[in-house]
């Protein structure tokens, strides 16, 4: 099948000497005119795509330079074959300035045969030529307007996944089910469960986002699918309270342990640790066990031990006697001291 030459300048209705600004303005004008949601003519969509392809080439300095090297002697619709030596020309289609954070393109498959003959995809690829991710799509997902209609990355989506504190602390490989909605042929919403296996890194914090590449919205044309982000929600824990990367635990202690000082066992996520209580520790005082909270490359949390002095509800005779003796000899007055 022969490839027909496309006059991209003619498609956009600009002179070969047109500036980048003129090309952008003209593209926007034509995009508004031929957008399939605005223009209901039968050929509007194909015209819109043709305009997008022309803009793809003429708005990119390297592609335009390469296209211009064909010269002005070709006419639209004329049979086209690449000039001898074309495939040996070295070109690097680097990322356009505005493409930072933008789209990646796997191949140029959705463009015309002419485009692919020139810039790779279905035909030959120029040496060192089209690089995936290099210079195809400006803009960010859902951000910049006038994105290329033919090669738009799918949107990123977000869902919430609830995990236990143990899973967040130690990390886990967790199967999760998301309820997925899709439209059936009658336009009704059908929901079905979709399973993903998610790798939870150790030390995952509440609110962290886990990326499932390519599981978001479908791209348009050859545009890559968006990503699915799972926002982590850590379920309340019966023992520990999570405060950022720190964990907090309340430890009841006996009056004599805080009065005299003692070593008491404290629960941590990796088993009990011995905490040295200084003599005179107060009820409600918070002591810090460094490095016993959530730990990851980004943060290193501590375990905060909230001391709560507990008093025996029932005393035996000996205890009563000893407390009475203490009350008698002690000069301590908590309402004054």
């Amino acid at each position: 099948m022969s490839v027909k030459f496309k006059d991209y300048y003619e498609v956009l209705g600009v002179a070969r000497t047109a500036s980048a600004d003129d090309i952008r303005k003209q593209y926007r004008k034509l995009a508004r005119k031929y957008h399939p949601d605005v223009n209901k003519h039968a050929d509007a969509e194909s015209r819109f795509k043709e305009i997008g392809e022309a803009y793809e080439v003429l708005s990119d300095v390297e592609k335009r330079k390469r296209y211009d090297q064909l010269g002005a002697n070709y006419h639209a619709g004329q049979d086209f074959a690449p000039p001898p030596g074309w495939e040996n020309m070295q070109y690097e289609f680097g990322a356009r300035p505005e493409s930072a954070g933008g789209y990646t393109a796997e191949a140029a498959g959705d463009f015309s045969d002419f485009f692919e003959t020139l810039f790779g995809g279905g035909g030959f690829r120029p040496g060192g030529g089209f690089r995936p991710g290099g210079g195809f799509r400006p803009g960010q997902a859902g951000g910049e307007p006038f994105q290329n209609f033919r090669k738009r990355r799918g949107e990123d989506h977000e869902a919430t996944v609830t995990i236990s504190l143990e899973e967040a602390f130690h990390g886990a490989k967790k199967p999760i089910h998301l309820q997925v909605a899709r439209m059936d042929e009658h336009g009704r919403v059908q929901r079905e469960s979709k399973q993903y296996t998610v790798q939870i890194p150790p030390g995952t914090a509440d609110g962290a986002r886990i990326r499932l590449a390519g599981q978001g919205g479908q791209g348009a044309g050859e545009g890559a699918a968006g990503d699915l982000y799972l926002r982590v929600q850590i379920a309340p824990h019966p023992v520990f309270r999570l405060i950022g990367a720190d964990l907090e635990v309340t430890v009841p202690v006996a009056p004599w342990e805080v009065a005299l000082g003692a070593k008491v066992p404290v629960p941590t996520m990796t088993g009990n640790a011995m905490l040295a209580l200084p003599a005179g520790t107060q009820s409600g005082q918070r002591l810090r066990l460094r490095g016993k909270g959530l730990a990851s490359a980004r943060h290193h949390g501590d375990l905060i031990v909230n001391i709560q002095v507990a008093v025996p509800r029932h005393l035996n005779e000996k205890e009563k006697t000893l407390f009475a003796e203490l009350a008698r000899v002690s000069s301590f007055n908590p309402r004054v001291d």
């Binding site: 989506h157 977000e158 869902a159 919430t160 996944v161 609830t162 089910h177 998301l178 309820q179 997925v180 909605a181 899709r182 439209m183 059936d184 042929e185 336009g187 009704r188 919403v189 929901r191 469960s193 979709k194 919205g217 479908q218 699915l228």
Partner: peptide, 21 residues
């Protein structure tokens, strides 16, 4: 419509009574 295949909602949340999104 087949292209728009999914919606992200945790499975444990209750589904609406009608065809609501």
């Amino acid at each position: 419509d087949d292209m728009f295949q999914a919606a992200s909602r945790p499975a444990e949340k209750s589904a609406p009574s009608r065809d609501l999104l």
